[in-house]
Amino acid sequence: MLLSRRTLLLAPPAAGLAARTAAAAGPMKVGFVYVSPIGDAGWSFQHELGRRAVDAALGSAVKTVYVENVEEGADAERVIRKLASDGNELIFATSFGYMNPTLKVAQQFPKIRFEHATGYKRAANVATYSARFYEGRYVAGMIAARMSKTGIMGDVAAFPIPEVVQGINAFTLGARSVNPKAQVKVVWTSSWFDPGKERAAADVLIAQGADVITHHTDSTAIAQVGEEKGVFTVAYNSDMAKYGPKTCLTAVTHVWGDYYVGRVKAAMAGTWTSGDTWGGFKDGMVKLAPYNAAVPDAVRQEAAAKIAQIADGSLKPFQGPIMDQSGKPKVAAGAAMSDKEIAEMKWFVEGVQGKI
């Protein structure tokens, strides 16, 4: 969640911390911190699936624990410090607001490895990781525009930070690639997980004419509202089709299992290093959920082709020409934004109706 930055190294990758010694006999202890309730869908649920993948792959060689619904800030620092004090040798902090608390605790426990999802600050024993969510957003925008009758779509967004802005922009660019007049209206909730606010935001967007709603929030509220009101939705984080069997077109999903298993194995072997990972379609960290029966075959085939092109690098979601919402040129024709520029994105593209 949160600010995807990439390439903004504040600390060089460190050499691998030592392999586990005889004194560390027994299963390796690994901790996870989640910003919202796990539930059965959403951001924290996807990370929980990653934790379960570690258990399934490594069995008795590891002992994983988690703490859910941890607020960003002081509470996060307390929880992360408790996990370190309890002997966890690798700790995954899975929300943007955990960045500074993670670094503070890491300084106090230099022999413990920490990983922070979506942050940009690193240290010798702190690595960062995230996914190129915007790749999925671009294709989802294409699908939404193909299914929209009004050409107006809505986005229920949490916080105006670069990762969220990237998603809104990519969704809009994808929509406009098939409907140049498409518009995307934005309503902010100022919360990662608040079903009530998310529902209210969706109601506002529907009242404003949006007939496809997407979101960058954690609950299943948008899919539920869409089903209740007969409005198409595109879910985020997890497949939420069971909450919108008739109206949820697909979902931009996040897949963390392979990453978590690989990093735990590296920590066990003493080959773990600090650094930054930013994976997308190519790496299997971003996928689209199975399509609703309402999505025509031609749209499915179009989406599959675009996913393949993004994966092989022949299509870049942020390739020019791109104008900002005031009509000012931001990316020239034939040029493409760098990872650093994408990571620092703080402006909306043409077609977005909303303010940062």
Rank of each mutant, 00 (worst) to 15 (best):
residue 308 A to Q: 14
residue 94 T to M: 13
residue 171 F to T: 10
residue 189 T to S: 09
residue 196 G to I: 14
residue 316 K to C: 02
residue 107 Q to Y: 00
residue 79 V to D: 09
residue 17 L to H: 10
residue 248 C to S: 15
residue 342 I to R: 10
residue 188 W to A: 09
residue 332 A to T: 00
residue 84 A to G: 11
residue 119 G to I: 06
residue 34 Y to D: 03
residue 299 V to Y: 00
residue 117 A to C: 13
residue 93 A to E: 12
residue 17 L to N: 09
residue 355 K to Q: 14
residue 222 I to V: 15
residue 119 G to Q: 08
residue 332 A to Q: 13
residue 306 K to G: 01
residue 303 A to V: 03
residue 115 E to A: 14
residue 180 P to S: 03
residue 179 N to F: 01
residue 111 K to A: 14
residue 51 R to K: 13
residue 20 R to F: 07
residue 256 W to G: 06
residue 281 F to D: 05
residue 4 S to M: 06
residue 17 L to Y: 02
residue 338 S to Y: 00
residue 133 F to K: 04
residue 218 D to T: 07
residue 89 E to N: 01
residue 66 Y to H: 15
residue 218 D to C: 05
residue 257 G to K: 11
residue 254 H to W: 11
residue 19 A to H: 04
residue 327 G to I: 01
residue 153 M to F: 00
residue 141 G to H: 03
residue 236 Y to C: 11
residue 318 F to L: 05
residue 275 G to Q: 02
residue 10 L to E: 14
residue 107 Q to R: 15
residue 323 M to R: 11
residue 118 T to C: 11
residue 230 G to L: 12
residue 314 S to A: 11
residue 58 L to M: 13
residue 224 Q to F: 02
residue 194 D to I: 03
residue 187 V to Y: 10
residue 21 T to W: 01
residue 335 A to S: 14
residue 251 A to H: 09
residue 300 R to M: 08
residue 86 D to P: 03
residue 137 R to C: 13
residue 37 P to M: 07
residue 229 K to P: 06
residue 18 A to P: 08
residue 300 R to C: 06
residue 336 A to W: 04
residue 294 A to V: 09
residue 176 R to A: 06
residue 126 V to F: 02
residue 352 V to D: 02
residue 205 L to W: 06
residue 122 R to K: 09
residue 108 Q to A: 15
residue 160 P to Y: 06
residue 114 F to Q: 04
residue 345 M to Y: 02
residue 198 E to C: 10
residue 351 G to M: 02
residue 37 P to E: 10
residue 25 A to G: 11
residue 145 A to N: 05
residue 304 A to E: 14
residue 236 Y to L: 10
residue 14 A to Q: 06
residue 244 G to D: 12
residue 56 A to E: 15
residue 117 A to G: 01
residue 97 G to C: 10
residue 58 L to I: 08
residue 61 A to F: 04
residue 353 Q to C: 00
residue 225 V to P: 01
residue 31 G to M: 06
residue 277 T to L: 12
residue 256 W to H: 08
residue 134 Y to V: 09
residue 302 E to P: 09
residue 124 A to L: 01
residue 353 Q to F: 03
residue 129 Y to G: 07
residue 184 V to Y: 06
